[in-house]
Design a binder for these strands. Structure first.
Length: 673
DNA sequence: AGCAATTCTCTTTTT
DNA sequence: GAGAATTGCT
């Protein structure tokens, strides 16, 4: 037996910890619950919620009050909702959703806060443009006032020209503005573009402030789909929402009162990932409740060692919200003792876990020195050593999504999208969000069309698919049996080896068949397109993936789209399965970050040093594990603590100069050749 | 040659 | 959008 039988006395102690938490809840003492990986943190959160519901539910209901539970992600929100059963007494949501709901009705106050922000930004931008220390603005600063004003007018009148050419190369840009702006201004096109950007920004802010004054702008909007503010359009994104939330709560005691009256219990999941401004808001509520002698309970649940995003407050929480009572849990309900021993050494702090199980001696941890070209051989070896099969899978961790795409079999799709103008430049990160994702709602526009095509293909291939899955209710509504049969036969006749061939086959039927319902199905997939020809589809893709290109790049871009469409449909299926987390192989690849909250029997951590601007990420860490590099330490902790039984680390380089650091954590180093 | 200008290259995740 | 690498100009 392995990890099945908990020790009775430890179970008793575990119960006692919950009793401690419950007592603090009764006494309205704010707590910080710390528990390492696999300790059952979410379980404790759930127990606490249920305790409050059971003991104080009637009272809360009577006063029309609720328990507020804040999570970091929508996924976590849904999980907690599921675990507690949908209780109307518990309000579970992400922080952004909740804050916006609480403040959105205070538009007068919000607009005022927004106005202050825009004014400050305006002053700052103007100051920067006139700051002699900033070299790139020198050409503008050298003009006299009258000439500055003339230039400003000219540029404002030529906005369209600028946006059309801003991503073109320097020579093209110069030509575009030839005769409009003196060429001496443009001797350095990069600097000239920066001057234009500053001028547009200033103008936008000024117009915005005027419109606020004249009451044309009366509301501020939070747009959860946007990742950047659009202040001059009265739109704010995630970060600024929290900033405004803090300001408005700070400013208005009435709002504080309303919030704590409605929510006398506030529980925060994964507090280490929560933004500082959120902790500040909660601290304000806490101080206010003391001031007016009102009973409020705040519970933070988390683990500072699992703070792997810069945004999170981490251990700074004690400075922002002081005097929290610490409750620690030292049990591990996930891993074998060999794994626990190692992860304790990695985190190396006051939380030293012990297994809750009697049968905890059933794991292994091994650190290997290898090289990149040996990865596949090594995995083959792991298959044998660990008895890997469809029912006993091996989960491999890599740092980057690029490798996840490659190892999961859709390298060409990844590279094709990466090569588009949409994902080059500042927007390159969006590629991962819109292609290498487990969340269909995040797929990019083109990815979404491809997804729907493969979805249809997969449904047709799978003989068990019920008809209701194959077609939207609306499409086959009122069909008789023969009509339905004909439609399915026609759909099944669609074929092709590449995506392009498959699409052509779909379009072909569209032209030549009058089968009832077929056209609707096609229109459902290609909602954004009006005529169903490959040519038209290509120009749609061109418009979406290659916006703002000149005529000279047109042919080249079309060729790239051709390559994208010529990828075999089998590769698209692999991508489709990845998005849906269909794990057909016995080896599954993840990013380190993406595994947070998950657990696997067998884990292989593939360790490379290059990660963004860091070129010696892990070698530096192992050279001095106590150097204070929390980011690498926490990432290593999160990765290794996913393993239930067997953990292997495969380091892709020579380790001789920092063996001690590795051995102090993982013990013996094995050389794989 | 020496400096200026332009182009290339980059991580993870969440809202 | 910053810093490195490459190309271009005089």
């Amino acid at each position: 037996m392995c990890l099945k039988t908990p020790k009775t006395e430890l179970l008793e102690e575990e119960k006692q910890i919950q009793v401690t938490i419950n007592n603090y809840i009764d006494e309205f003492k704010h707590i910080k619950f710390n528990a390492g990986a696999g300790a059952g943190k979410t379980h404790a959160l759930k127990e606490s919620l249920l305790y409050i519901v059971n003991k104080y539910g009637m009272k809360l209901k009577y006063h029309n009050q609720q328990i507020l539970c804040i999570t970091y992600t929508n996924v976590a929100t849904n999980e907690i909702k599921e675990r507690i059963g949908n209780s109307s007494l518990v309000k579970v949501s992400t922080i952004h959703e909740r804050i916006w709901e609480l403040i959105k009705d205070y538009q007068k106050e919000l607009v005022q806060i927004h106005q202050e922000k825009v004014s400050n930004e305006l002053i700052e931008t103007q100051a920067t443009l006139n700051n002699p220390d900033i070299v790139k603005y020198k050409k503008f600063q050298d003009l006299d006032e009258a000439n500055q004003e003339t230039l400003r007018q000219i540029l404002l009148d030529n906005r369209e020209l600028y946006y059309k050419n801003k991503d073109k190369n320097a020579a093209t840009f110069k030509t575009a503005f030839q005769g409009i702006v003196d060429s001496s201004m443009m001797s350095n096109v990069g600097q000239f573009k920066d001057i234009i950007k500053a001028i547009y920004k200033i103008s936008n802010y000024q117009i915005c402030l005027t419109k606020i004054d004249t009451k044309e702008y009366k509301t501020v909007v939070y747009d959860s789909k946007q990742n950047t503010d659009s202040l001059h359009r009265m739109k704010v994104s995630h970060e600024t929402l929290l900033e405004y939330g803090l300001k408005i709560v700070d400013k208005y005691d009435t709002l504080k009162k309303i919030i704590i009256n409605k929510f006398p219990y506030i529980l925060i999941d994964e507090y280490q990932d929560t933004a500082e401004n959120v902790i500040k808001i909660i601290n304000l509520l806490s101080m206010y409740s003391e001031q007016i002698n009102y009973n409020l309970f705040i519970g933070y649940f988390g683990d500072t060692a699992q703070n792997i995003y810069d945004i999170g407050v981490g251990s700074n929480i004690d400075e922002i919200h002081p005097n929290l009572v610490s409750v620690n849990k030292r049990f591990n309900r996930r891993s074998a003792k060999q794994v626990i021993e190692v992860i304790n050494k990695i985190r190396n702090d006051h939380i030293e876990q012990i297994s809750i199980y009697e049968d905890d001696d059933c794991g292994s941890v091994k650190f290997y020195q290898g090289s990149e070209d040996k990865i596949n051989d090594f995995i083959t070896q792991c298959r044998i050593d660990l008895n890997i099969s469809d029912t006993n899978k091996l989960h491999c961790f890599v740092l980057k999504n690029e490798l996840v795409a490659k190892y999961n079999g859709f390298e060409n799709i990844y590279n094709s999208f990466k090569d588009t103008s949409l994902y080059s430049g500042v927007n390159y990160q969006a590629l991962n969000t819109e292609l290498v994702t487990y969340d269909k709602t995040k797929l990019g526009v083109i990815q979404n069309i491809f997804y729907k095509i493969i979805e249809l293909q997969q449904l047709l291939v799978n003989p068990k698919t019920p008809i209701s899955d194959m077609l939207n209710e609306k499409i086959y509504e009122g069909f008789n049996f023969k009509e339905l049969f004909d439609l399915i036969e026609l759909l099944k006749s669609i074929s092709g080896n590449t995506l392009k061939e498959y699409i052509e086959s779909i379009f072909n039927n569209y032209e030549n068949s009058e089968t009832k319902g077929y056209k609707k199905k096609v229109e459902d997939i290609f909602k954004e397109i009006d005529t169903y020809t490959l040519e038209n589809l290509v120009s749609y893709i061109l418009e979406k993936l290659y916006r703002d290109i000149g005529d000279e790049q047109l042919e080249e871009s079309k060729e790239k789209i051709e390559i994208l469409l010529s990828i075999p449909i089998s590769e698209y299926i692999k991508w489709f399965e990845f998005v849906n987390r269909v794990e057909k192989q016995d080896i599954i690849y993840h990013t380190y970050h993406g595994t947070k909250g998950l657990e696997f029997d067998n884990v292989l951590v593939i360790m490379e040093n290059k990660f963004g601007k860091e070129t010696n990420k892990f070698s530096n860490f192992f050279s001095n594990p106590n150097s204070g590099d929390e980011n690498t330490k926490n990432l290593l902790y999160v990765a290794c603590s996913r393993a239930r039984k067997n953990l292997k680390i495969f380091y892709l380089d020579d380790v001789s100069s920092f063996r001690n650091g590795i051995e102090s954590i993982f013990g013996n180093i094995y050389i794989y050749e």
